[in-house]
Amino acid sequence: MQPIFVDKIQKNFGKTCAVDEISFAVNNEEIFGLLGPNGAGKTTAIRIILDIFKADKGSVSILGGPMTEEKKDHVGYLPEERGLYQDMPLDRCLIYMAGLKSLSVSESKTRLTKYLDRFELAAYRSKKVKELSKGMQQKAQLIATLIHEPEVVIIDEPFSALDPVNTQMVKDLLDEERKKGRAIIMCTHQMHQVEELCDRLVLIDHGRAMLYGTLEEVRNRYATQDILVNTSARLPLKITGVERVVDMNAHKKLVLKPGITAQSVLADLVRMKVAIEHFEIALPSLEEIFIQVVTEGVAKS
């Protein structure tokens, strides 16, 4: 059973179609990237999954069926914009939030102490939330998301306002949660984080799913006939099957003619006794794919 199964959900706001027949599934032990430009429909999709909004069409299955009040205790949600009581002391605020997930006060206190220590927030536990820095509030928000040990975690921009050290800490935490078997949906604009963390992803644009699959599948789908080569020697002016050579920072990109394989180019370079230090099929980065898909989408519309 997949803990999250989204089947052709659609949601209109007046004449605007915010989400248009989007489908995807998230497995246990998986971090799933929900990507898309601003206004693509990601937040609406999340709100439908969380049962904040009702879908006009389609259905969502969470932990084996529609969302119920009991299931809400097994879901952790971190919204993009912070959602803590600003005037409350940090510990009271988090204990209250945990209480709304049916955690007892004593258990909340025990777990909270561990989390506060881990996130280096123990010294700030009695401070009002509004007195904390943005980064600290973000960490506090993550504690509120995870303190009740949810089976399904939905996090929107978890790395915003975090410095590199804390970003790494959160990445480690998410990895741990994945290893515990959680199904995690992560929304972010930071493509390198997706490449580093996500197992699979869906890219939404204008309410529609444009890409869906594992990171590998997506990148292969957008792979071109290009090769990245690094050599200390000068490349010959003419290489069989190479249309042109583009200088990049550390590499040279060889753009191949149609029908030419990378192997034949490699063989040619070896035959010409070029000292090759690095040879790689030039798979596009997720960021490049993102920009390409979104730009094509804009052009079409």
């Binding site: 904040i52 879901v75 949600y77 959602g83 803590l84 009581y85 709304l100």
Partner: peptide, 14 residues
């Protein structure tokens, strides 16, 4: 609660 978005978290709990 609406202004500081707390409501969004609360309604995913109750």
């Amino acid at each position: 609660e609406k202004e500081n978005r707390t409501i969004e978290i609360i309604v995913t709990s109750v």
